[in-house]
Structures are given as structure tokens and as C-alpha cells.
Amino acid sequence: MVNLEDLSQAVVKGDVEAAFALTKAALEAGLPAGEILDRGLIPGLKEVGDLFEEGEYYLPELIVSGDAVAQALELLEPALRQGGEPHMGKYLIGTVQGDIHDLGKNIVIMMLKGNGWEVTDLGVDVSPEEFCAAVSEGDFQIVGLSSLLTMTMPNAARTIEALKKAGLREKVKVMVGGAPTTPEWAAQIGADAHAKDGPSAARVAAELVGKS
């Protein structure tokens, strides 16, 4: 019998090989992919997030845990997709125009994926028009805007304006984040939510779609 707690621990330790082997064994033992995610990967990632916030873990530990999750997800994704919709929903993310900081965004992506989101990454220096085009083409529940520079923070506001103009604002929830951003600023520019780091981004995203 595969113990999903071992899978959680493989994620916490960043043990890529173990995460792969345990996920494979769990699938072979007939466990549903959704359960492997919910009881294996997600609790593991939650612990990683806690350790990061408590100052035990830093970026290297986060990256290798992310690797372990990515390995497991590769096996799980086909099964997760069979049900049609992704487990949590579809998330579009990018760093706003003029800004190329992406470390933080990439960590948010890892956390979202590990929590069952299908994530589309537009990369860095993404213009409002590019965000709009992607929103109109895909069916995303949430759009995440990353912004690390105060001088380009207005481009997050511009992106929201552009979504409104294009009649797309009601189609998606908008989340913003990045070191200089605050919940007050998020509210001011008309975003639906703000999150201060990767773990809370996953939490807030779940709340936004009523799946927390």
C-alpha cells in the first residue's frame, strides 16, 4: 500500500526520485489522481510553504521541492485531465509591462500547479494587450499580475483597465502581487485580491473560486 504521507515528505525534502516512484506506485495501486494530489502533493507543498514562511526554507529548498512536485505532476496530469476540467481551474499569469522580475512569479506558478491549477505563463514584460488577448482566447478563472517595480506598478492598473475596455473584466478574477504591492493598492486599482507570497497565492486563488 502506498502511503501518501511519504509522498508529502518526498516533496518536503525535494526528493525528486522518491516523488516520482511514489506517485507511480500510487497510480498503479489504483488511487485516483485527485486523491494523490489532495493527500500527497498538496499537504507536502503546504509544509514547504510553512517552512519557507518560518524561515527554515529558502529559495534552493523551494526549487527542489518544486522539482519533486513537477515530476509527480507529469504522471498525474493525464489522469487529472481525464475528468475534463483541471482540478482547481485555469490560471493565467505574467509580469507586467516594463518589468522583468520573474523569480517570485515562478514560485507562485509552482505553488499553483502543485495545488491543482493549470497555469499558463505569459512570461515577463507583458503588455495589457497581451494579457487581454490571452484572456479572450482562453477560459481562465484567474489572471495574476506580478509587479516588482514601483515605476511599472501602474501597468497593472492599466492591464485591469484594458480588460474592462475589452469587456473581459467580468470573465476573470484578477490577483496582484510582488514585493512593493499591498492589499490597499490592489483594492485601489480594482483587483479582486492580493497575495503576499507563493503559499498565500495558492490559498487566495482557491478562495476566489470558492474551492478553499
Binding site: 529559495l59 534552493p60 523551494l62 526549487i63 527542489v64 522539482d67 523569480l103
Partner: peptide, 11 residues
Amino acid sequence: GDVGYFRAMVK
């Protein structure tokens, strides 16, 4: 690269 470097620090 950031990711490659951080990964190698551990692995």
C-alpha cells in the same frame, strides 16, 4: 540561471 543554480546548491 537562478533555478539551475539554486537546484545545484542542494543537489
